[in-house]
Design a protein around this nucleic acid. Structure first.
Lengths: 208, 208
DNA sequence: GTCTATATAATGATAGAC
DNA sequence: GTCTATCATTATATAGAC
């Protein structure tokens, strides 16, 4: 429920956050160390001092996103905080830049993103196999379901433009969540998504 | 039903095809003119001679994909050839590199890809609005449906790895198509996808 | 920790020969 | 149409001062 780590407001963290944002927007290759330095308001030399090479900086971003996701899953799912307002508020505030980075990393080709995709498929597959013991192609269903959900993250820019609302603003996330509920057969939706949409619905509806 | 254009086996076309493949794999920025030249087995100078600048080459790829898609829609949908074996065979042979390029272009940020996304959303939205005249958020549904379908294209590399089969091989496309049929509520599936999966099913089942 | 200055490499683009 | 040679720019990475 607290920020990921104590040293999070250090210069090092500022550089990493700036790098994540630029990597997400432009991709790794198109992002320069100079650009990162400028965004973080430091000199290019300091970026190298802290992370050595651009590739090492990219890996640091990967690891940060992975540890963030694991932490949120632990706090949210394992500790049953998914419906706690503080948890939801914290996720809505901190998750967007990390999600954007993840979406880009899946296309730019980072080992960490690929591993996370595979992990998500496996978790989904077990879930499907438990619910339905038929001969169905659970592997393909889990893969497609994962790709479809992450597809929205990867294409967030286009989704936001078509919606006229930022996907990562409360209203946008709500509309997309509800649309997913409408489009996907209910038996294949994880409880997380269902709860997320329901809780978000109650929250936004209550605000007006 | 014939190749897109007559000059398609020229050196110029070979360069464009090599560029499309590399742009799709690595993104525009990470792809060098030298790399394209090597893949097309020509000199770097010749690439510049034909397309002027790298940006102009990227635009040429965009336009080629767009004209290809429009042609296939015309021949397939408008002329009712969707179930013709020659049409299907031709698509399966020529579409994959173009789809891969399109998927990458959606993330790399090309105006043509963005326009195509918006167009797809609009077509889907009209389709949904015709079928269901309720107060539902058709815009959001159309957007999410489009993003989910294209998400599979954009994440084809991960989908193929998780499946253990190339998404753009007949078996892979079939498994993914069937999984989509299973996951998405039937009333939201366009007839194209349904027909595609059914025809593909019959074809593959008939081969063994 | 933070900066400036610089060495080194790679890339897009041009010019001109064949 | 096709190639080789070259220029100018830009990027990463290093070294050393403060």
């Amino acid at each position: 429920m607290r920020p990921i780590s104590e040293e999070d407001l250090t210069t090092r963290a500022r550089i990493r956050d700036a790098a994540m944002a630029l990597f997400a927007e432009q991709g790794v290759k198109a992002t320069t160390i100079r650009g990162i330095a400028e965004a973080a308001k430091v000199s290019p030399g300091l970026v190298q001092h802290h992370f050595g090479t651009k590739e090492a900086l990219r890996q640091a971003c990967d690891e940060y996103v992975l540890s963030y996701l694991r932490e949120q899953v632990t706090v949210g799912v394992t500790d049953h905080n998914l419906d706690k307002p503080e948890f939801i508020e914290n996720v809505h505030r901190t998750a967007p830049p990390l999600m954007k980075y993840l979406g880009r990393a899946l296309v730019d080709g980072s080992p960490a993103a690929a591993a996370m995709f595979d992990e998500l498929v496996s978790v989904t597959e077990e879930h499907l196999a438990d619910d339905d013991r038929s001969e169905a192609d659970h592997r393909a269903r889990a893969t497609v379901l994962t790709a479809m959900k992450l597809g929205i993250t990867v294409l967030h820019e286009h989704v936001s433009r078509a919606l006229g609302t930022d996907l990562y603003a409360p209203q946008g996330a709500l509309r997309v969540g509800k649309a997913q509920l409408d489009l996907i057969r209910p038996e294949f939706l994880g409880r997380e998504l269902f709860d997320q949409a329901r809780t978000g619905l109650e929250k936004v509806e209550g605000q007006r």
